[in-house]
Amino acid sequence: MLHAFAMYAYIPARDLPRARRFYEEKVGLTPKMETNGGVVYEFAKGTAAFLYPTPNAGTSQASQAFWSVTDVDGLIRKLKAKGVVFEDYDMPGEKSPEVAITAGGAKAAWFKDSEGNIMALIEEVPGSGG
């Protein structure tokens, strides 16, 4: 039933101006519009995320959202150059020099945003096992 509809991510922010600086200056997002006290960012294939103010930001210990990307390691290098710090998790799988983990058909890397939310970059890697 719901598979026929677009799904959007919420990104919580304790300090909205700080979070906007992180996403716009470090991650390179462009706001589509400001609404309901927050800001909407659009992505490929009609997807989007709503960055909104809440005191609950950064409380989840799991990934908040992920980008389906190509060349995880290349993106890690570019984001690190902008000041994004990637997490170095001890997980099963092959670890790249850039700390991405390849396992289960995907290569993944995680970073925390300015609010403590865990975000991920995921690249499909056919035949990577896991």
Rank of each mutant, 00 (worst) to 15 (best):
A4G: 12
A6I: 12
A6S: 11
A6C: 07
Y8M: 13
Y8L: 09
A9S: 13
I11A: 11
P12A: 13
R14Y: 01
D15H: 08
L16S: 09
P17K: 02
P17I: 05
A19S: 10
A19V: 03
A19I: 00
R20Q: 12
R20F: 00
R20D: 02
R21I: 14
R21K: 11
R21A: 10
F22P: 00
Y23L: 03
Y23T: 03
Y23N: 00
V27F: 00
V27A: 02
G28A: 09
G28L: 05
L29R: 05
P31V: 07
K32E: 15
K32L: 15
E34Y: 10
E34C: 02
G37M: 03
G37F: 04
G38Q: 04
Y41K: 05
E42M: 12
F43D: 07
A44P: 04
K45E: 13
T47Q: 10
T47N: 11
Y52N: 05
P53I: 03
T54P: 07
P55E: 10
A57V: 01
G58W: 07
G58N: 08
T59A: 10
S60L: 15
A62M: 14
S63I: 13
Q64W: 08
Q64P: 06
A65K: 02
A65P: 01
F66S: 12
S68Q: 15
V69M: 08
V69K: 04
V69G: 09
T70W: 10
T70K: 15
T70M: 11
D71V: 10
D71N: 15
V72R: 08
V72Q: 06
V72H: 08
D73N: 09
G74L: 09
L75G: 08
I76D: 02
I76Y: 00
I76N: 01
R77T: 14
K78V: 01
K78C: 03
L79Y: 06
L79Q: 00
A81T: 05
A81K: 09
A81S: 11
A81V: 07
A81W: 07
V84A: 00
E87T: 08
D88N: 12
D90E: 13
M91S: 05
P92A: 03
P92G: 07
P92S: 01
P92D: 09
G93R: 05
G93L: 05
E94K: 13
E94P: 07
P97R: 11
E98M: 09
E98S: 10
V99T: 14
V99D: 14
A100Y: 04
A100I: 01
I101G: 04
T102P: 02
T102M: 05
A103G: 06
G104E: 13
G105M: 06
G105N: 06
A106S: 14
A106N: 12
A106K: 15
A108F: 15
A108W: 10
A109K: 02
A109Q: 05
F111P: 00
D113G: 01
S114A: 11
S114L: 00
E115R: 02
G116W: 01
M119P: 07
A120P: 04
L121T: 05
E123Y: 06
E124H: 14
E124L: 10
E124F: 14
V125A: 08
V125K: 08
P126K: 13
G127D: 08
G127K: 03
G127W: 02
S128A: 14
S128F: 02
G129F: 04
G129W: 03
G130I: 06
